[in-house]
Nucleic acid binder design. Structure first.
Length: 875
DNA sequence: TGCGTCACG
DNA sequence: ACGTACGTGACGCAA
């Protein structure tokens, strides 16, 4: 059997399809790009799916073809190709060449004929062929070995025509498609056919008679006087039409299948075309940044020590790690750049150089870094405290635009028009294929990064100044990076034994529940598979499906809770899920993250990731340790102070987001509520339900709380109705009552959305920005989402600003008070410390003081705190 | 790798 | 009419 797979594409037809399927896009030079883009998408998809060994794109050669000698008006009356499409053909050809795909055109013949001829040759050799076109005529070429793909509305949606599929669809063989065209004609090609005979009649006649020729031989048997007359009157025209519709399978082509072998794209050339056409999404998805990275040399040397002959007062430094998990990753080496020359010191000598270590520690030596937190954390492992950080590329880029959330220097640089370096993925590979190349490659890669940091510093600082964000960057994010680095390096001690014992108990319970569930279901299955569970619940047991997901029945907790009264298995499943989550994520997951050397967990805070300005925590995530349910909360017993006799001390902001909302909206009612330190949910219930404080029931307060959440999230009646399990109308009434009671909030929400539409972005108290390009979209969903984001981001982001400022003030205060207390964790609105008992009294004073005064709002900030012998006990 | 689910603020 | 609450990360399953 042949392993060859031949892909034949109809270039003209596909370009037309792409052109009309996509809106007119242009690049910055005003060249239209939609057809090229659509063509590219289709090409990528089809190559991904088919893995062809041979490929050809066939084009029509010119206006006149051999068919015109049969019928002068062939394709007559057809609209001229729009100039917006014509101008794109050169780019399509260029792209095909860059992909390394053969293309071919032949005087007097159409693309169809080239494809027909080649597919016939392949077919005869028993080779597998796939034909791709937007023109259904080509389905006549389908055989056992040849499948014809026809694009369906859009460009990447494809219908596959095998002879069987043609049969199903028309009741005809592929070759009879020609006869059908002969009878019914084809308006788009100006093929006349027999007037008055359409698709249905044509198919019916062919089913009975087989072909146009046989039909005319047996005209007597055709029923219907009119039809017979029409057929007789147009016999010649029918024969001619059939000939016109027949694809030539013996065109005098000068190429053969063997010439079409496909060995893969020249990505540099492809990228070049993409860049020319500004295909941003495709460029982003590709690992290749630019061919410039291949051409522009960066001068550097690999050194055997870093000493004063290299070091200068100002340099960019980059610690090249094997991966982003710098707490455990291997250091590969250190790159330095002075803006002209680069140096690379392999890992084994880098921190061995005394000159270099003291250079790092001396604040008068200014360093430009890509990621100061990582640099400081890794240096600290080598007992070096880095000072004099003057620039942090990662943070600067993130402040300019938080949508730039990549950690990859190349990806960041690209955003600012700097292409002279490669992504980590393209140097090391990704996934299972990841491996370190030879040291010279690593050195060059790292030096390019160091150079990029140097070259981008000024540009980014100018941007920050323009946006009035320099203070946010330099006075908040940059100092915070050092603090977070210290928190990460210090880590938090976790009592392994506590987790192990909880794990044992959980496993026993889980096994028992599992057996109960199997007994109730009457069979064993994988409870963790939503798919299998759905079958058991909704098909075997016959419960009523309430909600669906893309892939089947929803078995989410809120759905199951509604079914709990229908069958006792539900309760067991919910319990199984709850305990299973604890076991897999929080027992087994956390145990895996405990470092053997110190028994601690060292999370990593991602400081340049979220679109709102919050931090995130990974490997492991310590910002989502269970607290709401007692069983889960017990996990916190394992988080203990790192020194005997010390305590955990936790402080959290009370209602910080609603206080921020009060500040920003200046709503009098809300401001007054916080000035009087009211219970805000009770106060909201009073206003929404028009009752006195004494009359507020717990249900009313719960509803009011949900309304407050809704306000912060960017309210929608549907969302609230889902959350409270009430009708949309009731939810709408709640919202209306709320906005009438807090008119300043309504005004603020309207203004913020309006402003975002004008400027394209929203800002926080410290001038953090988030761009919302979709807020002017004509797509309702995209626009609505952007509008809710516009309402939520200033609130969530300002709260993030406040706690970040508090962390900086707190770290300073601990030093100035000469305290041993360590800040360990941040969980969005709370800070967790460990402290010697003699410092508790001081903490009780300074922690609330510092946090409450981090940033002055027009309402007071309020902080609650607690301490105890584990995180669990800080309540 | 994407999806569903669920933990947190 | 449209179909959604905002922001995250980790796990197991099923392609």
């Amino acid at each position: 059997m042949s392993t060859e797979k031949i892909l034949l594409l109809d270039g003209n037809s596909l370009a037309y399809r792409a052109f009309f399927a996509l809106p007119l896009l242009t690049n910055e030079h005003g060249i239209h790009t939609n057809a090229v883009y659509g063509f590219t998408m289709m090409l990528q998809k089809i190559m991904d799916e088919e893995n062809p060994t041979h490929m050809l794109v066939a084009f029509d050669a010119g206006k006149t073809t051999f068919r015109h000698s049969t019928f002068g008006d062939y394709k007559g009356g057809r609209q001229k190709t729009p100039p917006e499409l014509s101008e794109q053909f050169p780019y399509i050809r260029k792209l095909i060449d860059a992909y390394g795909i053969k293309r071919y055109e032949l005087e007097m013949y159409e693309a169809d004929d080239i494809i027909g001829t080649l597919s016939k040759q392949a077919d005869e050799k028993g080779q597998q062929v796939v034909i791709v076109s937007g023109d259904k005529d080509l389905t006549q070429l389908a055989t056992d070995k040849t499948t014809v793909y026809i694009t369906r509305k859009g460009i990447t949606d494809i219908e596959k025509y095998t002879p069987e599929h043609v049969q199903e669809k028309y009741g005809l063989t592929p070759l009879q498609i020609i006869d059908m065209k002969g009878l019914m004609g084809d308006a788009s090609d100006n093929i006349p056919g027999v007037p008055g005979v359409g698709e249905k009649t044509a198919i019916k006649l062919l089913k009975e008679h087989g072909s146009v020729e046989d039909l005319y031989k047996a005209l007597d048997t055709v029923s219907g006087v009119k039809l017979k007359e029409k057929l007789i009157a147009n016999e010649e025209q029918a024969i001619m039409s059939k000939a016109l519709a027949t694809i030539e399978t013996a065109a005098p082509i000068q190429i053969s299948i063997d010439d079409l072998s496909y060995t893969g794209p020249n990505m540099e050339e492809v990228i070049e075309v993409w860049k020319e056409l500004a295909f941003k999404t495709l460029l982003e998805k590709s690992d290749y940044i630019s061919e410039e990275s291949e051409t522009t040399e960066v001068a550097f040397e690999i050194v055997e020590k870093i000493d004063s002959t290299i070091l200068d007062k100002v340099m960019s430094v980059h610690l090249e790690m094997y991966d982003g998990q710098y707490h455990t990753s291997e250091l590969l080496g250190i790159a330095l750049s002075d803006g002209e020359k680069g140096y690379f010191a392999p890992a084994d000598i880098a921190f061995q150089s005394k000159d270099f270590c003291s250079w790092l520690e001396n604040a008068t030596n200014k360093k430009y870094l890509a990621d100061s937190k990582a640099t400081q954390a890794v240096s600290r492992k080598h007992n070096v405290n880095v000072h004099g950080v003057e620039f942090d590329l990662l943070l600067a880029a993130y402040i300019v635009n938080p949508a730039i959330s990549s950690e990859d220097v190349a990806a960041i640089a690209k955003e600012f028009g700097y292409f002279n370096l490669l992504t980590n993925d393209s140097v090391y590979g990704k996934g299972a294929k990841k491996t370190a190349p030879e040291i010279e490659k690593i050195a060059e890669h790292a030096v390019r990064k160091a150079r990029a940091i140097w070259d981008l510093k000024e540009k980014l600082e100018v941007k920050l100044e323009e946006n009035e964000q320099y203070a946010l960057y330099k006075e908040i994010e940059l100092p915070l990076a050092s603090i977070l680095g210290t928190m990460e390096s210090d880590g938090v001690l976790v009592d392994k034994q506590i987790l192990v014992e909880m794990g044992h108990e959980l496993n026993i319970k889980l096994r028992a529940i599992e057996q109960d569930i199997y007994a109730l279901a009457g069979e064993t299955f994988n409870i963790n598979s939503p798919k299998q569970l759905g079958v058991i619940l909704f098909e075997k047991i016959g419960l009523t499906p309430i909600k669906k997901t893309k892939t089947g029945y929803s078995t989410a907790a809120d759905v199951l809770e509604k079914l709990a009264s229908e069958h006792e298995i539900i309760e067991q499943i919910l319990l199984y899920r709850q305990l299973g989550k604890l076991n897999s994520t929080y027992i087994e997951g956390l145990l895996k993250e405990i470092h053997e050397d110190d028994g601690k967990i060292h999370t990593r805070y991602q400081q340049a990731l979220t679109s709102t300005g919050r931090l995130s925590s990974i490997n492991p995530n310590l910002q989502n340790i269970p607290v709401r349910l007692e069983e889960g909360r017990k996990i916190r017993k394992a988080f203990v102070p790192s020194q005997p006799g010390w305590v955990m001390f936790a402080a959290d902001y009370s209602q910080i987001e609603l206080r921020v909302l009060a500040h920003m909206s200046k709503d009098e009612n809300l401001v007054e509520a916080f000035n009087n330190d009211l219970d805000i949910h009770t106060k909201t219930a009073m206003d929404v339900f028009h009752v006195e404080q004494e009359a507020v029931t717990s249900d009313m307060r719960r509803a009011a709380k949900a309304v407050n959440f809704g306000i912060v999230y960017g309210i929608s009646d549907y969302g609230l109705s889902q959350n409270l399990d009430i009708t949309r109308k009731e939810a709408a009434t709640f919202i209306e009552n709320y906005l009438n009671s807090f008119p300043g909030v309504k005004g603020y929400m309207d203004d913020i959305v309006h402003d975002a539409k004008q400027t394209g972005y929203v800002t926080t108290i410290l001038n953090r920005r988030r761009y919302l390009p979709e807020i002017t979209s004509s797509n309702f969903n995209l626009r609505s989402f952007a509008e809710r984001t516009a309402m939520n981001t200033p609130i969530q982001g300002s709260a993030a600003d406040i706690i970040k400022k508090a962390m900086i003030d707190m770290a300073e205060r601990l030093i100035s008070e000469n305290m041993q207390t360590k800040m360990l964790l941040q969980v969005h609105d709370e800070l967790i410390f460990e402290a010697p008992p003699e410092e508790i009294a001081m903490l009780e004073k300074i922690v609330p003081e510092v946090m409450e005064n981090a940033i002055k709002l027009i309402v007071p900030l309020k902080v609650d705190y607690a301490f105890g012998s584990s995180w669990y006990d800080t309540k």
